[in-house]
Amino acid sequence: MHIPDGFLSTPVWLGLDVVSLPAVGYVARRARRELEETRIPLLGVMGAFVFAAQMINFPVGAGTSGHLVGSALLAITLGPGAAAVVMTAILGIQAFVFQDGGVLALGANVFNMAFAGVLAGYLPYHFWGPRRLAFIAGGALSVLAGAALAIVELLVSGVPVPRPALLVSSGIFAVTALLEGLITAAVLEGIEKLNPGFIRKPEKTRPRALAVVGLTAVLLAAVGVLFASAYPDGLESLAESIGIADRARTLFATPLMDYEAQFFGSPWMQKAAAGLAGLALIYGVCLMIGRYVRRQRRA
């Protein structure tokens, strides 16, 4: 499920763009240093593999079938950093070429699937090692984390989702998640049989940071879902009342953000200038974070 443009409120899509896009740059550069150059064609081809693998149907019974999503599979075979890069590339192609997911919402989709999905898919494997239960849990968690975050983002953006629909979609997500777990496990076992070298050993370095980020994402998603299903209708006002919306607004506080309120009715040129400056600012922030991260890594 990729969020199209026009669904998320400005603080949500902008905030996630500003978080995700530089983060992808950081991960990409780190992955590049960690892995040999072989990996650049490898990551691209693996992205194509995920697309292609989705053409192969897995019968679920009752005449229906599902297909692989792939984030957990990639995380376990390529490592979480490289998997995040591949997932980002896939989401980028889907947004630009297939109109599956918005361009402004790319940050949100990357956050949900390339970061949270990959990490949630990787963690069980990281802790339990290569065993079937870890594969199943990884596949299932990757789907749950991505879907839950997407729902939360939509709800926070004020898109109304009636309670029954939320319940139904939770049920669908649960089934999809279980299926993804089973597919991931079956495919990984097949891959292991072909060549055990394909399954990367869990990395022993910096497990703590990884675990913290991953668990935060999963927790965030879980809390969000509970929260959302407890207060399906009043979520927007609730968010308002506990200050999420406010905080979001101050967090991204630029005079331009709210220019619809402040500049409405002011001269046309002024608004135009504000808009242009806003565009430049977003770009500048992304670029600066990227540069900063690059310098940090070099130092």
Partner: peptide, 16 residues
């Protein structure tokens, strides 16, 4: 299907 995806994976790897 799982076997097919696994073979596709291995082949993609070799292709890369």
């Amino acid at each position: 299907a799982a076997g097919a995806v696994a073979v596709l994976f291995a082949r993609s790897f070799g292709r890369a």
